[in-house]
Write a protein that binds this DNA or RNA. Structure first.
Length: 538
DNA sequence: GAGACGATGAATATCACT
DNA sequence: AGTGATATTCATCGTCTC
């Protein structure tokens, strides 16, 4: 492991303690709130940059831009076991996985089998499971949804109660006991209010202690994200794969002026979190002061709904203007209802008399916590900007959760960023003043990779960015190579595609097994590989 | 080919009320 | 506890225009 990580004051944080942690709210530890102010903190990275940045060793041949085809043309030995052939056995588990894949099973289903049967399962057991699963799958298609078996009937070994937390707070004690995450419980219920273990603006309900399942404890730390309102069962599955950690559901409306209900599964400490400063505006009026002049009294919205990938047409806003222009004061009930419905559906704001408009990409950037023009330039179209932004993290929210890493890694971190998108996690860490030493990033969209690469250059990052376009390229060999190169990953972060989970999707809301959303299993696969390699003692 | 536009509801949660 | 009304949702696809 990287010497920088285990050094200095890390004795306060024992990797192996399952529970540890008994600290105060971020309040009392005001020393933590020495946050670099917003985007103007480019210097902070350098200030902390005492760690050796071995840029030189890391040959520029490896510098991502050429990774499109992922050229391992360096004459390092990595070449010898790159693709189809022998991956060096990082663990027995991997060997089995490899064998199963060679037998023709998908990596994904093989992973599932190993997860279900346990690491000690023999190859025969695994194969039997896979055969049974295939039969079951065929039967499944004939079964009514209600009779479909769901989740884990296998993990009887984990009968322990693994979610125990102490709650410091005044209200909502009635919810506490329900928080225990029973594996027989089919429903992962969403917290109300949706504040996870706590948000900066509402500390009345704030959990500062939790016990992680043993298998969940790092290294590395990991942070997984997806839409909270996924089809039933999705989060049970996600949680089950991610070492039975209870998801933390948080609505970003507590961090910014727009809603964004998301679930996060992570093994980070949860005490001493602190928010990015300055705090972003929390209401539409604060975010867009100019709209106040035109905002009708009968539009009672103070915040926006979820920022999505599609936006309203100019024609729609014109229809709304026409519908309103005939009325001097307050329009009749029917008209108000129509207009308000459209406004809520499309997140329209008032920009003139009877005139509404969709948010500009710049404004969406701001709401999501990105620097202005983050997605602008480089030949990126307006439509692509909306799409990329709509799929992104809300930076303030993620940064709040990741803020606990700052004290743990004063010299910076090595980051594995899967499904990076426009770099929400990278931006969050940067704004927290956590130096990025080495970042391995996977992102399918070339537009997005370009955005992150551009941001990396603009912010004069001192570390190294390696980007790939396909998670499949990250196999055991490649991971071992990078981990060997810079001493493992400190954080594995990623939000896998939500296409088949999102409520907006009329066409293919197929759940976790959907075409894109099934990439979650690659997140698990890669994370598990990293954990195994780390455990092997790098 | 790129982009603007409109059509395409179901699933799920919340809430007021009995 | 049950019920009906109400609200929200990281989207996809075909067609058209330029």
């Amino acid at each position: 492991m990287d010497g920088g990580n285990s050094g200095s004051e890390s004795d306060n944080y024992d990797w192996n303690t399952e529970d540890e942690l008994e600290i105060e709210n971020f309040h009392s530890s005001s020393s933590n709130i020495t946050v670099p102010n917003g985007e103007a903190n480019s210097g902070s990275g350098e200030a902390l940059d005492s760690s050796p940045q071995n840029d030189e060793e890391i040959d520029s041949d490896f510098h991502s831009s050429d990774v499109e085809g992922c050229s391992f043309d360096d004459d390092s030995d990595i070449d010898s076991f790159s693709d189809d052939e022998e991956i060096p056995p990082v663990s027995e588990k991997n060997v089995k996985l490899k064998k199963l894949v060679k037998m023709g099973y998908e990596v994904q289903e093989a992973s599932v089998a190993m997860e279900r049967c346990g690491v000690d399962a023999s190859l025969e057991e695994l194969i039997e499971f896979l055969c049974t699963a295939q039969v079951a799958k065929a039967e499944d298609a004939l079964m009514a949804p209600e009779e479909k078996p769901r989740c884990s009937d296998h993990t009887n070994k984990n009968k322990r109660r693994y979610y125990e937390c102490e709650v410091l707070g005044r209200k909502r004690p009635r919810d506490i006991e329900k928080k225990t995450f029973d594996e027989d419980d089919e429903n992962v219920h969403l917290p109300n209010p949706m504040i996870g273990f706590g948000v900066p603006t509402d500390e009345s309900f704030s959990i500062t202690l939790r016990t992680l399942p043993e298998a969940a404890v790092g290294p590395p730390y990991f942070y997984y994200e997806n839409v909270a309102l996924a089809p039933k069962g999705s989060w049970q599955t996600i949680s089950r794969f991610l070492y039975d950690i209870e998801p933390e559901f948080v609505d970003s409306k507590y961090f910014c002026a727009a809603a964004r209900k998301r679930g996060y599964v992570h093994n980070l400490p949860i005490q001493n979190r602190y928010p990015l400063l300055p705090l972003p505006p929390h209401t539409v009026h604060e975010a867009f002061p100019l709209t106040k002049k035109w905002w009708p009294s009968w539009d009672d919205r103070t915040q926006l709904n979820c920022l999505q990938t599609a936006y309203a047409s100019a024609k729609l806003t014109e229809r709304i203007r026409k519908a309103l222009e005939n009325y001097e004061g307050t329009p009749p009930e029917e008209v108000r209802k129509y207009v308000l419905n459209e406004c809520r559906k499309w997140n329209l704001v008032w920009v003139g008399r009877n005139k509404v408009a969709p948010l500009e990409p710049d404004e969406v950037e701001m709401l999501l916590g990105f620097p202005r023009n983050h997605t602008r330039g480089g030949g990126i179209s307006r439509i692509d900007r909306y799409k990329s932004l709509g799929n992104s993290f809300q930076v303030d929210t993620v940064a709040y959760h990741l803020s606990v890493l700052k004290d743990l890694y004063p010299n910076g971190i090595n980051l594995l960023s899967l499904f990076s998108g426009i770099g929400g996690a990278e931006v969050a860490l940067y704004r927290l003043g956590i130096p990025l030493k080495n970042v391995v990033s996977v992102e399918k969209s070339e537009v997005n990779r370009s955005i992150v690469r551009s941001w990396w250059d603009q912010t004069n990052q001192k570390g190294n960015l390696f980007d790939f376009d396909d998670v499949q390229l990250l196999d055991g060999a490649r991971l071992e190579y990078y981990m060997e190169l810079f001493g493992g990953f400190d954080l594995v972060v990623g939000g896998s595609p939500c296409n088949n989970l999102a409520g907006s999707n009329r066409v293919s809301r197929d759940g976790l097994e959907g075409k894109e959303s099934a990439l979650f299993y690659d997140y698990f696969r890669i994370l598990d590989l990293v954990k195994n390699i780390m455990a092997k003692g790098h």
